[in-house]
Amino acid sequence: MKSALVTGANKGIGFEVAKILAQQGFFVYLGSRQLKNGEAAVEQLRAEGLQHIAAVQLDVTSQASVDAARSAITALDVLVNNAGIAGGFEQSALETSADDFLTVYDTNVFGVIRVTQAFIDLLRQSEAPRIVNVSTAMASLSLAADIENANYPKRYVAYQSSKSALNMYTVNLAYELKETACKVNAVCPGYTRTDFTGHQGTSTAAEAGQRIAKYALIGPDGPTGKYFSEEYYPAPAVCPW
């Protein structure tokens, strides 16, 4: 049985991705910063008939937590780096402090790096390893450079820049793994109604989960080193970086 790890999976989009992968026959490790929240999510999925799923305590900002999760998992085929934070709704290039930027980067960038590096040895042992990094269309430099762009009535500078950095990490990771079977992509789930957005948006968590899970399930001829944003561009389209 193939196995998958989804970070930040006790609710929202991560929960839906974990559910979809379990439905597709994966044993899913549901990563949750608070183990009790992860266990509650597992019970919910088991009530829906999904038995091959387990909670694992995983705080991506803690190397000790990442290392402990790695010790608990012995095989892995799919890694979905979903855990992320917005950093608040008031962000400014002139006023948001470096410490506030660091807090956002610690989860959205450094957390992905910690988890990926910790589990890459297991992924290398898989016949068809997949890594999906959850990004956003708001990270597009091409779109954001249009100062009058109506899609950006507000700027979330720490969040946007962290996801731009994540996109670059995704490309470089794919480059380093290009001679292997591993496929690495970044995916925007769309503007999704979850706690993350204050339950505002144009997509449901289930719809967003499908967009992400699709790239965890791609075949050997699938893309790598790309960024996909189906809500903002005709599917399957590649958004400009």
Rank of each mutant, 00 (worst) to 15 (best):
L122H: 02
S135Q: 01
R130T: 06
N185A: 14
R124H: 10
Y215S: 05
A206E: 14
A137H: 02
Y152H: 06
D146R: 09
V171M: 10
R193T: 07
R211D: 07
E176A: 13
N149I: 14
R124E: 11
G209V: 05
E148S: 11
A145Q: 07
M138A: 13
F196R: 00
D195I: 15
L122R: 00
Q200E: 12
L143W: 11
D146L: 04
P153V: 04
N167T: 05
L122A: 05
Q160W: 12
I120G: 02
N133Q: 04
R211K: 11
E207K: 02
I120M: 15
L166R: 05
C188K: 01
V184F: 15
A205T: 07
A144M: 10
C188P: 04
R155M: 13
S126L: 13
T170C: 13
T197P: 01
D195T: 14
A144W: 00
Q200Y: 11
R193A: 15
F196Q: 03
Q210M: 09
A205H: 04
S164W: 05
V184Y: 15
V134T: 01
V171P: 01
V134Q: 01
I131G: 01
K178P: 01
T180L: 12
A145F: 04
L177A: 14
V171H: 06
R124V: 09
L123E: 07
K154G: 08
S164N: 02
R130M: 09
S161D: 10
E179F: 10
A208W: 09
A145W: 05
Y215T: 01
T192L: 07
K214Q: 13
M168K: 14
H199V: 04
Y159P: 00
Q200A: 08
C182T: 14
A118I: 14
N133S: 04
A186P: 02
L177S: 10
S161N: 12
V187P: 05
T204E: 10
A139Y: 00
Q125F: 00
A118R: 03
A213G: 08
Q210K: 11
Y169E: 09
Y191Q: 06
P129V: 06
L143S: 03
S142T: 07
A144G: 02
L123V: 08
Y152A: 05
A165C: 08
A216H: 04
G190W: 05
A186E: 02
Y156T: 02
K154V: 12
L177E: 11
T202W: 12
A158S: 13
L123R: 01
